[in-house]
């Protein structure tokens, strides 16, 4: 199998409550493909954290999931405010989320660290005022 399977999603930035729809759908798709539960869990958690981040900070964005023979790649792209200091943002416990988001059980500064923890590769490209693109991969072999 050399071709890749692509799933594309729009993440709605206005609707905090709908976050998780894309990752839940990806989970179902990966199950149908017979991917192992451990891999599915890692992919869907990393993607859900990314979705939540796009809703909280960036007013939504797009998520593209590509399944190849070697890995599952997730590319999250937004036109939000960008991340000023990526190294600081990667620290567990660092968060710029507002209080109302914290009261929902998010904003504890675990999103980006979780995304790194559950994937084999993660790259953040961000420009202040332009947007952020995060690429993550979970290896299948």
């Amino acid at each position: 199998m050399s071709e890749q399977l692509l799933f594309t999603f729009d993440v709605d930035g206005d609707d905090f409550t709908s976050a998780g729809q894309a990752s839940s759908q990806v989970k179902r798709n990966l199950r149908q493909l017979g991917i192992s539960p451990d891999i599915i869990k890692r992919v869907s958690i990393a993607m859900y954290e990314g979705e939540i981040n796009m809703v909280i900070h960036a007013g939504g964005g797009t998520a593209v999931v590509a399944v190849t023979e070697e890995h599952i790649e997730i590319v999250l792209k937004d036109q939000g405010p960008g991340i000023k200091d990526i190294e600081q943002a990667m620290q567990e416990g660092f968060s710029t989320a507002p209080d109302d988001v914290r009261s929902l059980g998010f904003g504890a500064g675990m999103g980006l660290p979780n995304m790194k923890r559950y994937t084999d590769y993660m790259n953040i490209e961000s420009e202040v005022g332009v947007g952020t693109t995060i690429t993550m991969r979970v290896n299948l072999m």
Binding site: F16, T17, A19, G20, Q21, S23, S24, K27, K41, S44, I45, Y48, I52, L104, G105, F106
Partner: peptide
Amino acid sequence: NILAVATLS
């Protein structure tokens, strides 16, 4: 959001 977390976990 607890529903998404329950589904994913």
